[in-house]
C-alpha cells in the first residue's frame, strides 16, 4: 500500500494538537517563503535563528541544550560527527540500528538527506516526521543544530511542559505492566504495536512521564483530539500509569 502521510509537522502534537500543528505548518511555510525569496542557499549558509523556530516541531520528541535528556527520541546535543543510533542508553528502532550498522555518521550532508526524505534514509522508523521539502528551510535547521554544539552553552529546549499541573504523587505512581498489557489492547487497534506511525503516531518506548502527562492532558481536555479525549476520559491514574509502564517496554 502506498505510504500517505501529512506534510510538515512532527511529534505527538501532530496527532494531539491540531491548532499547534497548523501553527507549525505556518512556521514552515513562512520559512519556505523566506527561503524562496533569498534564493537557494547551500547548507553552510543556513540561518540558525530561523532554524531555531523550525526546531519547535522537533522539540516534542527531542531535547537539546544544557541538561538535555532522551525523550521520545534521543537528545540532539553533540549530534555532528556521531554515528547513527550510538547512544547506549536509548532504545532505537531497527531502522536506525540498520543505519548504524551501515556506518552512517551524522554530518550536514547526511542530515540534509535525512531531513529531506526521512522515509528513504530510515524507512519505518518510529519518527512521526515527513521531512522538510524546502532545501533552504533544511539548511536553517541544520545551522541551528550545529549551533547546539555539546549543549552546555545553550538553554534547555524541551517539549515536556513544566506547567502540566499534574500532582507529583500521580506522576510517581508505579504502573503495573501486566495490567497495562491488557489495557493496551484498546490502543493497538489504531497505534501499531510494531511502532509504525503512518497517519497515527507511534506510542512505543516513550519516557513514562511523557506518556503519563500526555494522557492526563487528554483526560483534562488540555490536549485536543476527540478519540484520545474519549479514551482517556475513563482511564484512572493507575490505568494511565499501567499503560505508560507497558508501552515504555512493550512485549513482542
Amino acid at each position: 500500500m502506498r505510504k500517505r502521510r501529512g506534510r510538515g509537522s512532527a511529534g505527538p502534537e501532530r496527532f494531539g494538537d491540531r491548532v499547534r500543528m497548523v501553527r507549525f505548518r505556518l512556521v514552515l511555510v513562512l520559512a519556505a517563503a523566506i527561503a524562496v525569496h533569498a534564493g537557494p542557499r547551500p547548507a553552510e549558509s543556513g540561518d540558525a535563528d530561523a532554524g531555531r523556530q523550525a526546531f519547535d516541531q522537533c522539540k516534542a520528541c527531542h531535547e537539546a541544550g544544557a541538561g538535555a535528556r532522551h525523550g521520545i527520541g534521543p537528545h540532539l546535543n553533540g549530534l555532528f560527527g556521531r554515528a547513527a543510533a550510538s547512544h547506549a542508553d536509548f532504545i532505537y528502532s531497527g531502522s536506525f540500528l540498520r543505519l548504524r550498522d551501515d556506518g552512517h555518521v551524522w554530518s550536514a550532508e547526511t542530515l540534509d538527506a535525512f531531513l529531506g526524505n526521512p522515509d528513504a534514509v530510515a524507512p519505518d522508523s518510529r519518527m512521526t516526521f515527513d521531512g522538510i521539502a524546502d532545501a533552504g528551510a533544511r539548511a536553517d535547521l541544520i545551522a541551528f543544530l550545529q549551533s547546539i554544539g555539546d549543549g552546555t552553552g545553550m538553554a534547555l529546549l524541551s517539549g515536556s511542559a513544566e506547567d502540566h499541573g499534574i500532582d507529583p504523587a500521580v506522576l510517581a505512581i508505579e504502573g503495573d505492566p501486566e495490567y497495562g498489557a491488557w489495557l493496551s489492547g484498546e490502543c493497538t487497534t489504531c497505534h501499531r504495536a510494531d511502532g509504525g506511525d503512518k497517519g497515527i503516531p507511534s506510542i512505543l518506548r516513550w519516557p513514562v512521564e511523557r506518556f503519563v502527562i500526555a494522557m492526563h492532558d487528554y483526560r483534562n481536555k488540555r490536549r485536543e483530539h476527540p478519540v484520545m479525549q474519549m479514551i482517556a476520559a475513563r482511564l484512572g491514574n493507575e490505568e494511565i500509569a499501567a499503560l505508560a509502564a507497558y508501552f515504555a517496554n512493550p512485549a513482542e
Partner: peptide, 8 residues
Amino acid sequence: ESEGWYSG
C-alpha cells in the same frame, strides 16, 4: 488517521 487506523 483512517489510513493509520487501517494499518493498525
